[in-house]
Design a protein around this nucleic acid. Sequence first.
DNA 1: TTGTAGGCGTTATCAG
DNA 2: CTGATAACGCCTACAA
Lengths: 340, 340
Amino acid sequence: MSGVERVTMKDVAKVAHVSPRTVSNVVNDYEYVKEDTRKRVWDAINSMGYSLNLSARGLRQGNTGIIILAVPDLTMPYFADLSDAVIAAAQKRGLYVLVEPTASNRNREREALHGMRKNMADGIIYCPLELNRKEIELLDVGIPVTVLSEPFGDRHFDHVMIQNREASLTATEYLLSRGCRRIAAIGLYGGQRQGPSVERLAGYRDALKQAGIPIDERLEVRTDSWHRSDGVAAVRKLLDQSVEIDGVVAFTDQLAEGAMFALQMAGKKVPDDVAVIGFDNNDESQYLMPPLTTIDPGIDKIAAQAVDILHSRIYGDESEKEKGQIIKKAPFELIIRQSA
Amino acid sequence: MSGVERVTMKDVAKVAHVSPRTVSNVVNDYEYVKEDTRKRVWDAINSMGYSLNLSARGLRQGNTGIIILAVPDLTMPYFADLSDAVIAAAQKRGLYVLVEPTASNRNREREALHGMRKNMADGIIYCPLELNRKEIELLDVGIPVTVLSEPFGDRHFDHVMIQNREASLTATEYLLSRGCRRIAAIGLYGGQRQGPSVERLAGYRDALKQAGIPIDERLEVRTDSWHRSDGVAAVRKLLDQSVEIDGVVAFTDQLAEGAMFALQMAGKKVPDDVAVIGFDNNDESQYLMPPLTTIDPGIDKIAAQAVDILHSRIYGDESEKEKGQIIKKAPFELIIRQSA
DNA sequence: TTGTAGGCGTTATCAG
DNA sequence: CTGATAACGCCTACAA
């Protein structure tokens, strides 16, 4: 097969009759290299099969060109889409992305490794499902961090916010405008006082309050996670307890999907008997029966902003690095289809 | 915030009153270190906030601990699930995974970067959708490669195979056993003579042949890709052309999902009018209406095998590295639900 | 069981 | 515009 021999810059330099310094300049597109020299060097590089050793560069420069994207679970469509978007955005800036599932079904004992990974990266984009103290501690590792959530605690990480509360308010308002009065909220998550699910519930309550409708806690269904099966379970619970409903605000499209499934299994028509609205606008939501009305959180913009912020923190000039906490709100959009 | 000062092994050594060598031994869990010394070193490490510089280690040892997972598109559930599984498997072996979408909607001009990435990794797991010459060339970069497909060409990469042809045969046989006689095959992809979609079509034809049913090319629908929208388009095409069908073998669950959607929109009942079977067993397929009968390709096993093979090629002793081409077939399973 | 010394491939500094 | 030289932080013979 291929070589045991490692071709280095020095080797290339010898063949091209220049110094290693010049080879480095060529490889890094340094401006002031004679055209002639540049060509000679590239020829040597290609003919010798040389390739840059990024470990060496990293050691010398003190950075790796890698950022970590920490998401709960790649098998959830929202996070898969987000990862894809972040990788694309990072690529534009010449960064590599190490995806790290933090709460995947397949990973349980990753804590140990966590400590190591930070050494491999120049920055972290962290996407929390819930915010417990331990995870937050893990973030504070001496490299820039951008968190995809509302700001929390006394930490001063940068944030790119999904407007969970406002979007949830919008979704609920829409159901109200369609005449729903018994609206269930599905997806309050875990035992946290903060995090996306708490915000989404708050938005739901805001809308009810504005409409003068009293809160009925039986309509607020907790779930173990945000998978489809949780949506099924939530609706079953409502039906079992004979809680009357004419609308469902699901905190993710998967929950909505599961909810619609369970409703239809129980002989309810969507949207006639029960209107359903989701959150995320995953690709699949437009192919459900009926197609799902949902909130589009603008994933590409979120990803691009997160990467841009991180990039400026890591590689920007001093003035950028020293800037105070950056907080951006991403715009969202109500996508109306047939489920509500 | 945190430090400008970089703590090195030498610093730790000084504080712990040992040599850098000993610190290295401790960090790397070398066996022969006195308990007392070990503790002293760890204390120093923790109190000083030292962390290992992986670039330096990589430079010294000639490897990075990173493998690349090249998949077409993270937004496709199959590849998201696969990535999750590969990351989990890699974690068990202490490897980091750089996910690289090769044909994502969001990435078009990544060719240029491709050359660079190989320098950052010790090995590649490559998951092809189609096999064109250019992509194959790109693979041959001097580090071990494991390909998730049937072997091809004259290259001697290692392979972990999904049994596309056999599984597709099984799926089609099942529809036949349920009485279908006009079975459409949806998802022949691109203009290639090789690749998963070609194999799946072959399996479909095998089954028809075995059953003595003549091939009708109008039933074999090409698609641009394997997204839900392609499933919709394929069925619409069949219906528009008034091609009679009573069954659909879709080459992915997403195609099946789109197909069911289009069928139901056209007033057809699934499975009574048209039975539908998918391929992949994504989580969502059990929540469709009706729940989707499909093929489970055993993603966890595929991921684990691919990582294991790569690991032995990279870090194994010489005898393992020199072994000839490794080819493994992953088992699959027919999952029967209500769509067929 | 631990210390010493040297180099892995790059890039930055400093000349020229 | 290009050359020499010195680090970057770690690992590993070799020695003790």
